[in-house]
Amino acid sequence: MTTEFKNQVKEKLAGYIAQKGSQNKAANSLNGVSAALLSQIMNDNHQNISEVMWRNVASQIGCSSKKWFCVETTDFKIISKVLEDAQQHAHVFALTGDAGSGKSMSFEIYTKINKNSYLLSCAEYWNRKEFLTQLLTVMGVDYSGFSVAEMMNEIVKKLKSQESPLIILDEADKLPDTVLYFFITLFNRLEEHCGIVLCATDHLSKRINKGIKLNRKGYKEINSRIGRRFIELKGVSFTDVTQICMANGIDDVKSIKDIFTDSEGDLRRVKRKIHAVKNKI
């Protein structure tokens, strides 16, 4: 655990605290982390902080000792524009894009530099209470002892008190219907106060369209609230891969072409291939 890495964590943490609004809110949004610990890091009082805790904080705020340089891909620019519009004007949008197109990374970058923006990476096992728990956690709100109704009321109250808040539901297609209906509730109670963006693969648009045809509860309402439109991302282009390769130390044309062909439009694969080429694996 080098001093350089600790300084990197401190610098990243300072931005994270500023984005959340205070050390207490930042601590509440992190698992297993107290405000006192954050204060120790920021004040260079390191003697009682274990390496495990340093890594815990670093991983949760997106600080890594491994060098990787991101670039503004075509989809990154589209996503950024949609998120900015949603946050500034309290609009609601739905985005669809292939797995590995860089959606999640784009969301993480946006929320780290834009105050009052909250990212939820949805999961299949979430019930209504877990959904609200996760949202309150990223908002840095203490929800201990709250019922589901009280949690929802607290979310609405906090968001209405903020300037231009934004909720991003990544991998929204993983949510079961009972939780997806909460999107309708959030929209109804936060209309013109909070932007909301749903994002997933095209499975989400297919699911919504199928639900409408089968007249399933809530699906017409969801479709109406997203403007009856899914914004489709463009996917990973050769230009995108070229820029990523050059930013990360690969500039010969043959290697770039090979990486693009092998990646099949998946940026995770691009990263693996760049590592393989640089390390001659």
Score class of each variant (00 low, 15 high):
Tyr110Met: 02
Val92Thr: 13
Ser121Thr: 12
Ile109Gly: 00
Thr96Met: 05
Ser64Ala: 11
Ser80Ala: 03
Ser106Lys: 05
Glu108Lys: 13
Ser80Gln: 07
Trp126Tyr: 14
Val138Ile: 15
Val92Gln: 09
Asn48His: 14
Phe93Glu: 04
Ser65Asp: 12
Ile79Lys: 02
Glu108Tyr: 03
Tyr110Gln: 02
Glu72His: 06
Val148Trp: 01
Ser65Ala: 12
Val138Cys: 08
Ala99Ser: 14
Ser121Ala: 11
Leu136Ile: 09
Lys67Asn: 12
Arg128Trp: 00
Ser147Val: 05
Ala36Ser: 15
Val148Ala: 10
Ala149Pro: 01
Glu84His: 08
Ile61Ala: 05
Ser80Ile: 00
His89Val: 07
Glu124Ala: 15
Ser104Ile: 12
Ile78Asp: 11
Phe107Thr: 10
Lys66Ser: 13
Leu83Phe: 04
Thr137Ala: 12
Ser50Gln: 02
Val92Arg: 04
Gln47Leu: 08
Ser106Thr: 10
Lys115Thr: 15
Phe107Arg: 05
Met42Trp: 03
Gly145Ser: 06
Trp68Glu: 11
Leu136His: 04
Arg128Asn: 13
Ile49Asn: 05
Ala94Met: 12
Asp85Pro: 00
Thr74Leu: 05
Lys81Thr: 09
Ala36Glu: 14
Ala149Asp: 14
Leu119Gly: 05
Lys112Arg: 15
Lys115Arg: 15
Thr111Gln: 05
Cys63Arg: 01
Phe69His: 13
Val92Ala: 02
Asn114Tyr: 13
Arg55Pro: 00
Gly97Trp: 01
Lys66Tyr: 09
Trp126Leu: 12
Asn127Pro: 06
Leu38Ala: 06
Ala94Asn: 03
Leu120Thr: 05
Phe146Arg: 10
Gln40Ser: 14
Ser50Arg: 01
Gln47Thr: 11
Ile49His: 07
Ser59Phe: 05
Phe93Ala: 08
Ser144Trp: 08
Ser59Thr: 13
Ser144Arg: 14
Ala36Thr: 15
Leu83Arg: 07
Thr137Met: 14
His89Ile: 06
Phe76Met: 06
Val141Cys: 08
Ala36Arg: 15
His89Trp: 07
Ser104Cys: 07
Gly62Cys: 07
Ser104Val: 12
Gln47Val: 03
Glu130Lys: 15
Val148Thr: 14
Asn153Arg: 14
Lys129Val: 07
Ser80Pro: 00
Val52Thr: 11
Ser101Gln: 01
Lys129Gln: 13
Asp44Arg: 13
Phe76Gln: 07
Trp54Gln: 01
Gly97His: 04
Met152Ser: 06
Lys66Arg: 07
